[in-house]
Design a protein around this nucleic acid. Structure first.
Ligand SMILES: NC(=O)c1ccc[n+]([C@@H]2O[C@H](COP(=O)([O-])OP(=O)(O)OC[C@H]3O[C@@H](n4cnc5c(N)ncnc54)[C@H](O)[C@@H]3O)[C@@H](O)[C@H]2O)c1
Ligand SMILES: NC(=O)c1ccc[n+]([C@@H]2O[C@H](COP(=O)([O-])OP(=O)(O)OC[C@H]3O[C@@H](n4cnc5c(N)ncnc54)[C@H](O)[C@@H]3O)[C@@H](O)[C@H]2O)c1
Lengths: 241, 241
DNA sequence: CGGAGTTTGTGACCACGAGAACAAACTCGC
DNA sequence: GCGAGTTTGTTCTCGTGGTCACAAACTCCG
């Protein structure tokens, strides 16, 4: 999605491994960062790729390859310094400073999100909660006052917000997204089960519960079917155990 | 370079449509299903791959290829019958009948999930809410009584549950997962920011807010860096917009 | 009834990602 | 100081998935 292959021609090289990190790697960096944080909390100062890979639930070769895209921050024969690597990953992701975030749609889900502490502890700070409903106005959720949706542009400009979370009903999602883009937001996390249409340059990621469950259901169905077949003829490709 | 033509050698042939649906396709089928449902609600009886692809936010060739894995359910020169295709996809996913689901951890997020209607309308039925905390016992959330975590095995057996949702704090997630597996659950949707270890045969999918936000932050950082560079040397490939 | 137009289904091709394997680089013991 | 042992960074290979393009199959109209 929105592959941004800027293909920089200049060979300043050296301190420029900041280009071309594969999307799949980007998606795993936060997992590594969390694993490292967990190690640091247990006062572990350094670790091998094998240990970190286990903690992150991936293959150690994959981990090393991923880390190699950011640079060479390990020491052969030794491993990685936990704090140093944490900082490098955080820097690469861009969470060394906090990002201001707004949440639009303070219903069941929006309130849970607003109360979610993991937000603030991982590089993000909820600066405003917005809702269109009259009865939500003035209410305080998670220490923040719920503000009218009409204030969106003003808030985004004042707080330099570039990331917005959508937790409104699916029917309103596109309108909210349009308003967000109009206000200057360029990254959207969408919880509504709707396909969002945004101009190029704006990133959208979706979190969709129903889809996840349906994927599980698909595999579950096949497990059941396979069990039936095994009873039936017993000859399945050597899956062993 | 790296122009490897995978040279498969044998013509494999023999389509057995119900086998071997690529994971990427499985992940998109629910999106198509939702788009079809939306069309059906607008009394649209048939559609072309182009229309459906637009509604689902994908490329039409990809859509056709995805659908071709399930069989040949379209009519050339005409398109797809909405109801018929909906049924075929639902059947393939395995959501023609409802799946019983339990939710463990009825805190902020768990309550939002329990109240989430999209659950029940898309092939799933929440049959029980479980929580370990004393003060949650006996409370009613979304019309269901919160039951003690100790009842897990009993409930799973009685209701034939194979899908479980985890929304407990990260520190408790592995314990809950272990108990679920022990009780016979073979598909887990995990909202806790923790890497779960499960035996083979058990599927885990995770929904991780922090990770999604960090991925957005990464791209956001690069957008900012790119803007700087553009100011710097002004030589950027015509991005237009 | 036949040709023009339309849309599906699929084969070919290419880019991306996963994993195994190994050389380079470092530490430690002697 | 040097060899043995360890662990990283990288290369190579292969499978998966995305996109293009087109033949096959269907409808419609004259
Ligand atoms: N509840 C869940 O667990 C859950 C899970 C997954 C996805 N979702 C999705 O998240 C979204 C929100 O779910 P919810 O349960 O919180 O719904 P909800 O109805 O409780 O809350 C929606 C909120 O959005 C506000 N709103 C509506 N239109 C708006 C607009 N145009 N601008 C600003 N605010 C507006 C409403 O006033 C309301 O407060 C839905 O799309 C739902 O499908 C919810
Ligand atoms: N709130 C959010 O929006 C949000 C978003 C993303 C992820 N998460 C994650 O979801 C999880 C739950 O979040 P929350 O905000 O609902 O937390 P919460 O503290 O409000 O609720 C957790 C619930 O789990 C119960 N619990 C604890 N240990 C248990 C155990 N061993 N067995 C059964 N129940 C147990 C607690 O009694 C509590 O009711 C956390 O891991 C959090 O990181 C939350």
């Amino acid at each position: 999605m929105t592959a941004r292959s800027t293909n920089t021609g200049e060979g300043s090289g050296a301190q420029d491994p900041h280009r071309d990190i594969p999307e799949a790697t980007v998606a795993r960096l936060p997992v590594y960062l969390r694993a490292l944080t967990s190690l640091a909390e247990r006062n572990i100062a350094s670790c091998s790729s094998e240990e970190l890979a286990t903690a992150a639930g991936v293959n150690s070769a994959k981990l090393r390859k991923d880390l190699s895209y950011l640079g060479s921050y390990g020491t052969r024969g030794v491993g990685y310094d936990v704090d140093y690597l944490s900082y490098q990953i955080a820097r690469e992701i861009g969470v060394t400073h906090d990002w201001p975030v707004i949440i639009v749609g303070i219903g069941n889900l929006g309130q849970a999100l607003a109360n979610f502490s993991g937000f603030s502890s991982r590089g993000f700070r909820t600066v405003a909660l917005l809702d269109a409903a009259e009865q939500m106005q003035g209410r305080t959720v998670a220490g923040l006052e719920v503000r009218p949706f009409a204030d969106l542009a003003e808030i985004v400009a004042a707080e330099q917000v570039s990331i917005g979370v959508i937790s409104v009903p699916a029917t309103a999602a596109q309108d909210v997204a349009d308003a967000m883009v109009e206000a200057g937001i360029s990254s959207i996390l969408n919880f509504a089960p709707a396909v969002l249409n945004v101009p190029p340059g704006v990133d959208v990621r979706k979190v969709d519960l129903s889809i996840e469950l349906q994927i599980l259901a698909y595999h579950e169905s096949r497990k059941a079917a396979e069990a039936d077949e095994t009873v039936d003829n017993g000859s399945e490709e050597g899956i062993t155990a």
